[in-house]
Simulated assay, not measured.
Amino acid sequence: MSYAISLTVNGTRHDLALEDPRVTLLDLLRERLALTGTKKGCDRGQCGACTVLVDGRRVNACLSLALSLDGSDVTTIEGLAQGEALHPVQEAFIACDGMQCGYCTPGQIMSAVGLIAEGRVGDDPERIREGMSGNLCRCGAYQGITEAVRTATRRMSETEERAGA
Score class of each variant (00 low, 15 high):
D123V: 15
Q82A: 14
E84P: 11
Q46H: 12
E31I: 01
D15S: 14
V54S: 09
A95Y: 02
N10Y: 08
I5G: 08
Q100D: 04
R57F: 09
R120N: 14
E31C: 09
T76N: 07
S111N: 14
P106R: 02
V89L: 07
E161F: 07
R120L: 15
I109K: 03
C62I: 03
T8M: 05
A95I: 06
D55S: 08
A92F: 00
L136I: 13
G144Q: 00
I77F: 10
G107F: 04
R32F: 05
L25K: 02
V74I: 15
V89W: 01
G71P: 04
L69I: 09
M156Q: 09
A66E: 06
A85Q: 15
Y3N: 11
Q143M: 13
A17W: 04
M110C: 05
V121Q: 12
V113K: 01
Q46T: 15
G45E: 01
E118N: 11
R150H: 00
T8E: 12
G45R: 01
F93W: 04
C137Q: 11
L86F: 13
E161T: 12
L80S: 06
R22Y: 11
T75A: 14
C137T: 07
T75E: 13
C137A: 10
V54Q: 08
I116C: 01
E158S: 01
C137G: 12
R155L: 08
G37K: 12
G41Y: 03
E118D: 15
C101M: 10
P21I: 10
R129Q: 06
L16E: 00
G134T: 06
L26P: 02
L28Q: 12
F93G: 00
E161Y: 01
S157E: 14
K39D: 02
V59P: 07
L86T: 05
E78W: 09
M156T: 02
D70H: 15
M156S: 02
E130C: 09
Q100M: 00
K39G: 06
A81H: 04
G79E: 03
G140P: 10
E19V: 10
S111V: 05
R58E: 13
V54I: 11
T12A: 14
Q108P: 03
R58P: 13
Q143N: 14
N135P: 03
G131N: 01
A61F: 09
D73G: 06
E147K: 15
L29G: 12
G107V: 03
C62R: 08
A148F: 06
G134P: 01
K40G: 13
C50G: 08
A4F: 11
V52H: 08
G122Y: 05
Y142A: 03
S111C: 15
G41T: 00
T12W: 08
Y142V: 06
L16S: 06
A165H: 11
E130V: 09
Y103E: 05
G140R: 04
H14G: 01
L80D: 05
S133R: 08
T146C: 11
M99T: 14
A148R: 01
A152P: 03
A112R: 02
V54A: 13
Q108W: 08
G98K: 05
T105A: 07
S133F: 09
N10W: 06
T76Q: 02
Q90D: 03
D123H: 14
C62F: 07
I128M: 03
T76D: 04
T76R: 04
E19S: 15
V121N: 10
